[in-house]
Structure formats: C-alpha cells, structure tokens
Amino acid sequence: MATTDTQSSTKTMKLEVFRFLPDEGEPPSFQVYEVPYRDDWVVLDALNYIKDEIDGTLSYRWSCRMGVCGSCGMMVNGEPKLTCSAFLRDYYPQQIKVEPLSYFPVIRDLIINMDHFIDKMGEVKTWLIPAEDKPIEDGEYLQTPAQLAKYKQFTMCINCMLCYSACPVFGQNPDFIGPAAIALGQRYNLDSRDGGADERADVLFSDEGIWECTFVGECSEVCPKNVDPAGAIQMAKVTATNDWFKSFLMPGGRKKSGGNK
C-alpha cells in the first residue's frame, strides 16, 4: 500500500465490511480491512481506498461525495448514514462496521435493491399534478412565500432511504409506503399549485400508507436533510381523519379531499 503521506501512514483503522457475493453461493459474511486513518476522511473515502488498493471485488453505490445525491447510504455501526458525511475521526480508533441499509434486500455487498421504493414513489405520484391546466401563454403559476413555506421542507428529500432503514415498521412490513414516499406525497399535497391530493389519498391514506406508522420518529432523526417525514405523516393523519369525518357528514363530499394548503 503505497502512500506518500508519512504522517497518516502511521495510523490505521479497521473496517468490518458486510460481504455478499451471490454468484459464489456463500452465505453473507464480514471481512475486515485495515485502511490508513486520516482525520479528513469519511467512511466512503475508506471504502474507495479498499476498492482501489486492497480488494477490487467490493461493491457499493456512490456518486457525488457531498451529501446531495443520496446514493451512499449504508449502516455505519448500526446507524443509517450517508457514508460521504460520516467522518472516520468520529469513530477512531474503534473499528467501524459497515453494512447495507437495513431491511432492504441485498443484491451484492453493500448494494441494496431499491426497486420497491421507486415503485412506491410511483404509486404515491410524487410529482406535481396541476390543479388547473392552463396554456403556457397564460403565464406562470404564482405562489406566495407563505404558500411555499408550507411544503418547502419536504422538497429537500434526496431519496437516500436512510429513513426506511431507521423505520422498524418498514422492517416488519416491507409493503409499508414508508417515510420518504409519504413525505414526498405531502410535499405535493401541500403545494398550492397541486390538485392531486385526492388521487394520492387512495394510496397515502390506505392501510399500507400513513396508518401503518406508529410514530417511532427515528426517520426524522436520521434524515440528513431535516425533511421530518415523521411530522409529514402525522400531519397527513390529521388531514385524512378530517376527510374521513367529512365523508360521513356530506356523502359524496369525499372527492373533495385535500391537503390543508
């Protein structure tokens, strides 16, 4: 392991990494790697070092290295973390255990299968469904700062799925729509330009949606972008409950579902 940095070559750190190679037919195991310790390194840097210098067979996802893309989420000592934001210095000199995000199926090593999560976003329709269609020449859809404030927090989601790995409800029931997809549903439900709340309600307000949530609250604790999915879900419960009672008071009025914009 050639390194020119004399100071850092003296200190090393051990990473215990989850390995699963489906083609080998072996059960999953842990492999310990020794990497140089540098106080400006994050766990992702250490993994890159392993991949480049020690073991090229190690597989994991990463892209931006700056906490924006949401690709490098893994369990670091049992906590869901973006590995690009988890500094070695916060663990040194203890060994660090790196595993794929909890509860998701593992495809290989640290790579999880996220298909189900992508499907859920499709079911919830996490995109803008315009409340009124108007031609481009009629100009933009205007929005006040107060209207923006209602949903802005939820736009910060980077789909990193750390919240799912912090959610025991998702652990027990993989069909639970889950924190991020519900928060993103709320992001559009609370948008004054959006008219899709009623379409989304069939999924969001179903038994697999918000009502599975028991408000453990850890999704919001681990979120690297302070999206607060737990808050989004509780607000949705209030909206769904209001809608439900309204549907009894005025039969047929159920189609008037909406976020409290």
Binding site: D202, S206, D207, G209, A240, T241, F245
Partner: peptide, 12 residues
C-alpha cells in the same frame, strides 16, 4: 388500494 377506516380508531 382503499382508503382506510383507521381514522375512527385513531381519533379515539
């Protein structure tokens, strides 16, 4: 998926 009747129980 159908909308849930959980609101009744959640309210209580």
């Amino acid at each position: 998926m159908a909308r849930s009747n959980e609101p009744a129980f959640w309210s209580l």
